[in-house]
Amino acid sequence: MDLSTKSALSKVPEVTLLFWVIKIAATTLGETGGDAVSMSMHLGYLIGTGIFSVVFLAAVFAQIRAKLFHPFLYWTTIIATTTVGTTLADFADRSLGIGYAGGSTLLSALLIGSLFIWYRTLGSVSVNTVSSPKAEMFYWVTIMFSQTLGTALGDWTADTAGLGYTGAALVFGALLALVAAAYFWTKISRTLLFWAAFVLTRPLGAVVGDFLDKPLNAGGLALSRYSASAALLAFIVICMLLFKQRAARSPH
């Protein structure tokens, strides 16, 4: 690979079906893994958030320092955003008492604000342009907000709205299907559709994760958070080993 080819590559993966399969698995892992640390280990949401924040910052630092796209590093960083998003949303919703609706509203504003500032600063929020440290900073901050929002939105839909975990999963699955249909059969901005799908996969993963590990009397399967997290992590690793991922092509 020559220098001109390297410079044309983004630091994030090409958006394919494999990307979305791993993304949903990673967001589900974020829920079970976050709950394992904050609940099963009895560390609480604040300490759990502190632990995962350190992991998140270290992963983002390594990702930005990397010269090229590295699948294992990228997905490690994604998983870090989902775990910190889980504990942070739970801390805000439950420990601070702002509730799921309040948390979802606040995080929606932060997500929109992040995308707006990113667009005004660099002129694009397309993932294909994520090839500079500044773009990567915006990218990972935006993703962290989207993952945290997804946790609060998933909990609000399943609990407050009374749909339960399976009902909420069906709702978010249907919304993702609509986004996919818009991608194939409309001319709606691909960047807009990407971020819509990216946000929606998080609450889907959150409610699926809750369905796996919550008690039977709460509508879950009561599986071990540790074993569920290990199985999801193994699935992600196997996907990365069996299927090669390429970096997204930069338009520049």
Rank of each mutant, 00 (worst) to 15 (best):
T28K: 02
N128H: 09
L216T: 13
L9P: 03
T105E: 15
S40F: 06
S7E: 13
S104Q: 09
D90H: 00
L193Y: 05
Y139N: 14
Y45S: 03
A228P: 06
F145K: 14
T32S: 12
Y119F: 15
I117V: 15
M39P: 01
K11N: 11
S108R: 04
S40A: 15
G150L: 00
G209W: 00
R120L: 07
S229P: 10
L241I: 09
I236A: 04
C239L: 09
L204W: 04
L232T: 07
G123P: 06
A222S: 09
F211M: 14
F69T: 01
D210S: 14
F52W: 10
A58C: 04
Y226R: 03
V12W: 00
I98R: 04
D2E: 14
P215Y: 06
L216P: 01
T82G: 13
A135P: 03
Y183D: 12
V37H: 04
R94K: 03
L57G: 03
A62Y: 05
A59Y: 01
V60A: 08
W156V: 05
P133E: 15
F56N: 04
T32F: 07
L170H: 04
D93G: 10
L193N: 08
W20Q: 05
V21R: 01
A36F: 14
I22A: 10
S250C: 11
G50V: 07
E31Y: 07
G30T: 05
I238R: 00
M1L: 14
A230Q: 07
G205L: 00
T16Y: 08
Y165M: 10
I98H: 03
M137E: 05
A89T: 11
V127T: 15
D2P: 08
F235K: 02
T5K: 10
